[in-house]
Amino acid sequence: MFKSASKPSPSTSYTATAPGSGVAARAFEVRKVYGEGDASVAALDGVSIDFGAGAFTAVMGPSGSGKSTLMHCMAALDTVSAGQVFIGDIELAGLGDKQLTKLRRDKIGFVFQAYNLVPTLTAQENIELPLSIAGRKPDRQWFDTVIDTVGLRDRLGHRPNQLSGGQQQRVACARALVSRPDVVFADEPTGNLDSAASAEVLAFLRRSVDDHRQTVIMVTHDPVAASYTDRVVFLADGRVVDELRNPTADDVLEEMKVLSARSVAGTDSGR
């Protein structure tokens, strides 16, 4: 039903999946267990997955399947119970808080579902924040490119509370991109937005992949959002259960139906 007017023309980029130029982030046999004993929940139960550099990947799955957990573990916000996580060729295990902080600052960008911006800072200051925290000067040309890609040049002086939700998320994306991180993680970046605002944000992420070879990994529940990506990975009960390449919204919807039917059957038979 959201068959999108704003869906990009499929001509150029869909084929550019997994361009062989290496792996931007990798999970290997990752387990994440919350709680202890009987009350323990394995949010991730042996996830192994490679995210290719310069690709736009979607992570999908039912609520509680471990998507956010995977994002957090990969983005150095949380530690894994077992297994390994790599950003580029750096393994996260064994890094101290200082090194993790530095890693997040220099190599990772993050976009949350909401509350992405520091309310006291203007849009521009928010965008420049990761760089200025690191004491680095923004690369003017890249900054301008990012700003133009986001299309917010006339709003740079505004504070978050003077921006719409979609604008705020685009600012958040710009912030995630401005330091040229190796990977950008986005956890339901369009979850709070209507379809038009979603399209703005997704188009922006797509362009950053196409034009600047950015690696983007995005969690979403929305098949239309997933259709912007090069590859969709499906999680269920903390495991990777399937994946699609160059998906259309219909493909995704279809796959979701299949998976949910299978999982219901699976749970039933398990009992």
Binding site: K98, T101, F112, P119, P130
Partner: peptide
Amino acid sequence: REVGLLRAIGVSR
């Protein structure tokens, strides 16, 4: 929340 955000984007302790 804001503190969390700052930490997430690379502000050190």
